[in-house]
């Protein structure tokens, strides 16, 4: 890590690339010149980067929640009814292989350039993988649990909430994790193309004013948030389930 930072710093000091293409990380090339961390701190203080992060996370979360609800619903229907599995199930596998940003031209025509289009891209990016994971989870609930619950008087909604959902939790969590990663990529791509605030939009601004220090600062923010979500949120969820179930020591 230190080696990479040092190498970056040294390259920025040589005249190999112009400063706007390869901005220094910490030490400015000319007194008062731009650095990546300077821009990052500045952006956080003035609220430019912070606001953009808020806008992006807001969209992202809304799309993610919609995708989870849709994914769980589709997943349940696919696991429950054979004919839905044969029709929608196959379709979902096909849809899953389409990168969600491909939907963007269609989204612009349908919803116009802006918030709804971006939301659409995020949602569609996360829904299919969530559907696939949750239907696998639901299908693999051991019939032993279901039979045991039924003889103890559970049925219908109670059975779904208290047995089928918790029994497929390991699959659902890994679904959430992948869905988040997909949605995260989707929101960046959509904002980069579709504008109107957010980190992706800011990246585009950075590009147009040839301020690579801003671009790199935003990339750091994106990387940090992505890592935090994966390590602190989803990995922890997976671990706590594994500990409870005793599937990992």
């Amino acid at each position: 890590m230190i080696v990479i930072i040092a190498a970056w710093e040294i390259i920025s000091k040589t005249d190999l690339f112009p400063a706007f293409m390869w901005p220094p990380l910490f030490i400015p090339n000319v007194p008062g010149g731009p650095t990546v961390f300077g821009t990052l701190i500045n952006g956080l203080i003035t609220g430019q980067i912070l606001n953009a992060t808020g806008v992006t996370l807001g969209r992202m979360l809304l799309g993610f929640v919609i995708a989870i609800v849709l994914g769980l619903t589709f997943g349940y229907l696919i696991s429950r009814y054979k004919w839905i599995d044969d029709t929608l199930g196959f379709f979902v596998t096909a849809l899953q292989s389409i990168p969600s940003i491909v939907w963007f031209p269609l989204a612009i025509v349908w919803f116009g350039l802006g918030f709804v289009s971006i939301l659409f891209i995020v949602t569609i990016g996360a829904t299919w993988t969530m559907t696939v994971n949750s239907s696998t989870g639901f299908k693999n609930v051991p019939s032993l649990y279901i039979n045991a619950a039924k003889t103890l008087g559970s049925s219908g909604g109670h059975l779904v909430r208290n047995v089928i959902l918790p029994a497929s939790l390991p699959h659902i969590i890994s679904g959430l994790r992948v869905a988040w990663a997909f949605a995260w990529r989707a929101v960046m791509a959509a904002e980069l193309l579709g504008g109107s605030g957010g980190l992706g939009y800011l990246l585009n601004v950075g590009r147009s004013i040839q301020s690579m220090d801003l671009v790199l600062a935003i990339m750091i923010v994106i990387g940090v948030i992505g890592t935090i979500m994966d390590n602190q949120v989803f990995l922890r969820m997976e671990r706590s389930v594994a500990r409870k179930w005793g599937t990992r020591t």
Binding site: V163, P166, A167
Partner: peptide, 8 residues
């Protein structure tokens, strides 16, 4: 196999 729920 008992059929206890591992999450409870």
């Amino acid at each position: 196999q008992g059929g206890l729920f591992p999450w409870m």
